[in-house]
């Protein structure tokens, strides 16, 4: 069995990227573990990443845990479609292509779908379970509202898994040592296309919240975050009838009372 795993190595942004806090998402790690388990002893697992030299550290780790080949496509700042086009020639011929459901920088999550389109493969994305004992492969997909979809996936297929699907195994010491000096195969990547999908910052999904309690004024105050009623108006000393009339006039002016009410 031949499996390709796509990893995205994410470093801390800034003028001087710092690889100490860089890494791949738990979902990407779960993808590799799932691939290693599916491939078993005789299988072949290729890990591919699109990125700069910093991502070699991630590929070394993939080698140490048992990836058969690792390839870095040299390129930065590519959109999801370009990334998929860069990976497609490497992934072509694989039984499965496994991706993480999200990257550490919470990109578009669109690469697996584009990749499936490039390869003409089936796709099952956002998986919460992979049952490797069944042929064809049976997977469980998360749907909205806590529902699940169970799919039997033909080959070739692109699968993206959530982080909880599997925990990446720990590399042996000898493998870690030999991987630390391994040569990483690098292939040239495409130039960024000018009109591609724009990667926007991660935006949390909208949630339904109960309506605020209290009247309109309280809601306005909540929204404006002004807390207690602001003190306004002036202090006057009047006889009771005059005072009552003054209050009624003021309430009319603020439109708490209709203006034509006598």
């Amino acid at each position: 069995m031949r499996i390709t795993v796509c990893w995205k190595w994410v470093a801390v942004d800034g003028a001087d990227p710092d690889d100490r806090w860089a890494g791949v998402s738990p979902a990407d790690e779960a993808a590799l573990e799932t691939a290693l388990t599916l491939a078993g002893n005789g299988g072949e697992v290729t890990v591919v990443t699109v990125g700069a030299t910093g991502s070699d550290a991630g590929l070394r780790r993939a080698t140490a845990v048992g990836a058969t080949h690792v390839i870095r496509v040299d390129g930065e700042g590519l959109g999801a479609r370009d990334v998929a086009r860069a990976i497609a020639p490497i992934a072509r011929g694989s039984d499965y292509v496994l991706c993480g459901d999200y990257s550490l920088d919470r990109g578009t999550g669109a690469v697996p779908a584009y990749l499936a389109a490039e390869l003409g493969a089936a796709q099952a994305l956002g998986l919460v379970g992979v049952d490797r004992t069944r042929v064809p492969l049976r997977v469980v997909r998360r749907l909205d509202g806590g529902r699940r979809e169970i799919l039997d996936v033909p080959t070739p297929a692109v699968l993206s898994v959530e982080g909880a699907v599997a925990r990446l195994r720990r590399a042996g010491l000898a493998e870690t040592l030999s991987a630390s000096t391994a040569t990483i195969e690098v292939v040239a990547g495409p130039r960024p296309a000018e009109h591609d999908v724009v990667v926007t910052p991660y935006r949390p999904r909208a949630r339904m919240l109960p309506p605020p309690s209290g009247g309109t004024l309280a809601r306005v105050r909540d929204i404006l975050d002004i807390g207690a009623a602001p003190a306004h108006g002036d202090a006057v000393t009047l006889d009771p009838p005059e005072a009552a009339q003054r209050i009624i006039d003021q309430l009319r002016e603020w439109r708490y009372l209709p203006r034509d009410t006598a």
Binding site: R170, A171, G172, L173, A174, T176
Partner: peptide
């Protein structure tokens, strides 16, 4: 010994 599999050095 280390905490890695086959981790004796």
């Amino acid at each position: 010994t280390t905490d890695r599999p086959e981790g004796d050095l």
